[in-house]
Design a protein around this nucleic acid. Structure first.
Length: 753
DNA sequence: CATTGTGTAAAT
DNA sequence: TATTTACAC
């Protein structure tokens, strides 16, 4: 009988899902005749049949291992079907698989916070979903369990001597402690998810369910393929007592080895006698503390709501005799890689509206003849400019810089006459170029897509960041008010936005709004304290320009978008603590369709929001930019030196809001401390929703919502072609559109409220 | 001659 | 900040 355990309220339910021999499954879906056969996926490479990067379970039975050569696999398992990944001609081989992985993430992200841990692994925080299920359905009856849930493996169940309890029994226990009940709910949810993944993508996966990431990950691999495993809290210590240290994520390398050598420790459990201080002494404060917790099965890592990669890179190895020894050949490959990288960047820009800022080059260089034939490494970086030629040029100079560090004198580049070799005798065995520091750029604010950004699943792939706008309303006290034109005439607006207004003090408040889906806004934080207003909140110039006019005397809220790289996010976390401002009560800010203040004149009437996501440096469109993207963003173009301009745009937005509310005279100015402010904000929001509803009825359209899965081809076809294209591109990564009974556009896009 | 190619994170 | 190192699949 399980012992009731006092659970702190923050028990989490974390799942780790792992696609089974994923590349193989992708190939099998393409070619169903390969199903059920021994299959290996090899990376193109004529040498010994290429290297295997995935092996089907049928082939594993014959002893075929990943990282074998194709030829060796064939020897062990003559029946094996070896599928080659496309390599050359612009076809980045792994991208195909990455896209397939995205399909899976799309299904999973319906359930909770989702983190793409690798091309074929996903972490899921389903704490909320599990708690909800607990309230709704617990305790479960055996009959109600799905087959997949019944097949769940529960670690530590049928111990020796005891009467065997089935997994179903365990899941349905009435009197289990809350932590176990939550895991049971988690298991049932994950079973459903895995079935959904199978139904919608044809891929099978394995899963682990536990109270933290480390446990979930540890567990997901215990029963493969296509099975799920739960690790109850009560079994953790038992497991860690016998588990080889290597199995723990992060201990598979040198650290694990030195742990074993230094301390004679072979399992995590054997770390228990060591004090945290001792471990920190040996391995540093950070690692030491981490180890101490791991030994106890504890791990506070959060599931990051991130499904997009933070960098792109491509690389090419030139093993042994293939090593490059002339600048000409190096340039050739730098060119290939540059092209491929730019293609990835184009794709990212198109699909996610993101751009990278940093270009990095790595090269492994083998220096011969000289004192040591030791292999060395060099890495250089510089700002990334878009365009294949620019990337090539930059990557070239990075390479030369690296080589100069590496070779004595200036001999590095010149080939020796006669011999094909360069005078320095270098040989390049690996080149890798990467694009880092990727972050969102503003989508065209006039773009129809921004109207259609659904409030749910903000972390879904294939969707542009939709947190681009602050809604500004309420009253603003501004020195400019005396100059406020009396008329609402748009013609007057232009003169209203004169330059001298910019230097006027503006006090105001960005009004929070709400949403029906609080769960998708979990990463929202408010920064609103007077005390903080002059604090060093480090942020990008874009944020700086927004906050400064408001910051001194007023309160404002910041909204974190789904991307960890989001400007706002960094602004909030940039205080050095790395943490969000958790002591502040989260406040919702709704984004709404809006025209950019600098780009509109007649629409000023409806301009109640301002674009705050402009990262000036990014706005300048490079040559490599797709023309349709270019046209969407054209009106946002400004360059780094135009900080001032952007700042002005923000202030203009504020000024306008001031004017609008002056004319309407609805709401009094709001000031106060955090304690008094938050309730007020909430009340304001209520009113705002009401007025917004009215005005949207008046104007005919304002906020739209849709459910992605409900969009249907028939209706899409009724939209204007440009809108169709834009939507399709935004939906590209998701599963095919479903047929539906509904046939009219208005059925699909009911006006919110 | 030969674990490739991608990606993340932390230490320095 | 830029670079290096470690780790994982």
């Amino acid at each position: 009988m399980p012992v009731a355990r006092p659970d702190s309220g923050d028990t989490r339910v974390i799942a780790h899902l792992d696609l089974d021999c994923f590349y193989v499954q992708v190939e099998q879906r393409k070619r169903p005749e390969l199903r059920g056969k021994p299959v290996g996926v090899v990376q193109y490479n004529p040498w010994k049949g290429g290297g295997l990067i995935a092996v089907s379970y049928e082939a594993r039975k014959c002893g075929v291992l990943r990282c074998m050569r194709g030829d060796d696999a064939k020897k062990i398992c003559p029946d094996i079907e070896l599928v080659k990944t496309p390599w050359a001609d612009g076809h980045a081989p792994l991208n195909w698989y990455r896209d397939a992985g995205t399909e899976v993430v799309t299904v999973l992200s319906r359930a909770g916070v989702c983190e793409r841990a690798s091309i074929d692994e996903v972490y899921l925080d389903i704490t909320e979903a599990a708690a909800a299920r607990l309230l709704k359905d617990f305790p479960f009856t055996i009959d109600s369990l799905s087959d997949e849930a019944r097949k769940t493996r529960i670690l530590g169940l049928a111990e020796d001597g005891e009467i065997a309890m089935t997994a179903a029994d365990w899941l349905c226990q009435k009197d289990s402690p809350r932590c176990d009940a939550l895991l049971a709910c988690g298991a049932i949810i994950v079973a459903e998810l895995r079935e959904a993944v199978l139904a919608e993508t044809q891929f099978t996966c394995s899963a682990g369910i536990g109270h933290n990431k480390m446990l979930a990950k540890l567990t997901s691999g215990m029963h493969k393929p296509a099975q799920q495993t739960v690790i109850p809290a009560s079994y953790v210590s038992t497991l860690l007592a016998s588990l080889p240290l290597k199995k723990i994520g992060g201990l598979g390398g040198k650290l694990g080895k030195s742990l074993q050598e230094d301390l004679g420790v072979k399992t995590p459990g054997e770390l228990l006698p060591f004090s945290q201080l001792k471990l920190q002494e040996l391995y540093g404060a950070n690692t030491g503390a981490w180890l101490w917790h791991i030994a106890r099965g504890k791990n506070g890592d959060e599931v990051q709501g991130r499904v997009l990669t933070k960098s792109h890179s491509c690389s090419r190895a030139f093993p042994g005799p293939k090593a490059l020894t002339s600048m000409t050949s190096v340039m050739h490959w730098l060119g290939e890689l540059s092209d491929r990288l730019q293609e990835q960047l184009d794709l990212d820009l198109e699909m996610h509206n993101r751009k990278a800022k940093l270009l990095v080059l790595h090269a492994a260089v083998h220096l011969r003849g000289a004192s040591q034939p030791a292999k060395k490494f060099s890495s250089k970086s510089c700002p990334l400019r878009y365009g294949k030629e620019k990337i090539l040029a930059d990557v070239r100079s990075l390479f030369e810089r690296g080589l100069r560090d590496f070779c004595p004198l200036n001999k590095s580049l010149s080939p020796v006459k006669g011999s094909g070799r360069n005078s320095c005798n270098w040989a390049v065995t690996l080149i890798s170029i990467g694009a880092n520091d990727i972050s969102a750029i503003p989508t065209g604010v006039n773009s129809i897509t921004s109207f259609f950004a659904a409030p749910t699943h903000s972390h879904l792939p294939g969707r542009r960041s939709r947190v681009e706008h602050f809604q500004v309303s309420e009253e603003f006290e501004t020195g400019a008010s005396s100059r406020t034109p009396s008329s609402n005439d748009p013609e007057n607006m232009t003169s209203f936005f004169s330059d001298d207004i910019i230097n006027d003090e503006v006090t105001g408040i960005l009004q929070p709004c709400s949403s029906e889906e609080p769960a998708s806004y979990r990463n929202l934080f408010a920064v609103d304290d007077d005390k903080n207003s002059d604090a060093d909140i480090k942020c990008t110039p874009a944020i700086e320009s927004i906050s400064s006019p408001v910051r001194r005397k007023s309160h404002f809220q910041l909204f974190e978008s789904d991307s960890r790289n989001s400007v706002l996010n960094r602004c909030i976390r940039g205080d050095g603590s790395g943490n969000p401002c958790e002591d502040l009560e989260p406040t919702l800010i709704q984004c709404s369709p809006v025209e950019h203040p600098t780009s509109v004149s007649s629409e000023l009437e409806t301009c109640s929001a301002i674009n705050i996501n402009s990262q000036h440096a990014d706005l300048k469109l490079e040559d490599g930019c797709r023309s349709d993207v270019r046209s969407n963003t054209r009106e946002l173009e400004c360059s780094r030196e135009a900080d001032e301009k952007s700042s002005r745009a923000v202030q203009l937005g504020l000024a306008f809001a001031s004017k609008a509310s002056t004319s309407e005279r609805q709401n009094p100015p709001i000031t106060g401390t955090k304690a008094t402010l938050v309730p007020k904000l909430k009340e304001l929001w209520q009113r705002n929703v009401a007025t917004q509803a009215q005005s949207s009825v008046k104007r005919g359209a304002s906020n739209w919502e849709y459910k992605q899965e409900e969009i249907d081809e028939v209706v899409l076809a009724q939209l204007p072609v440009e809108i169709q294209q834009e939507l399709r591109s935004s939906l590209k990564l998701n599963r095919p559109l479903r047929p539906s009974k509904r046939t009219s556009i208005s059925d699909f896009f009911p006006s919110a409220k």
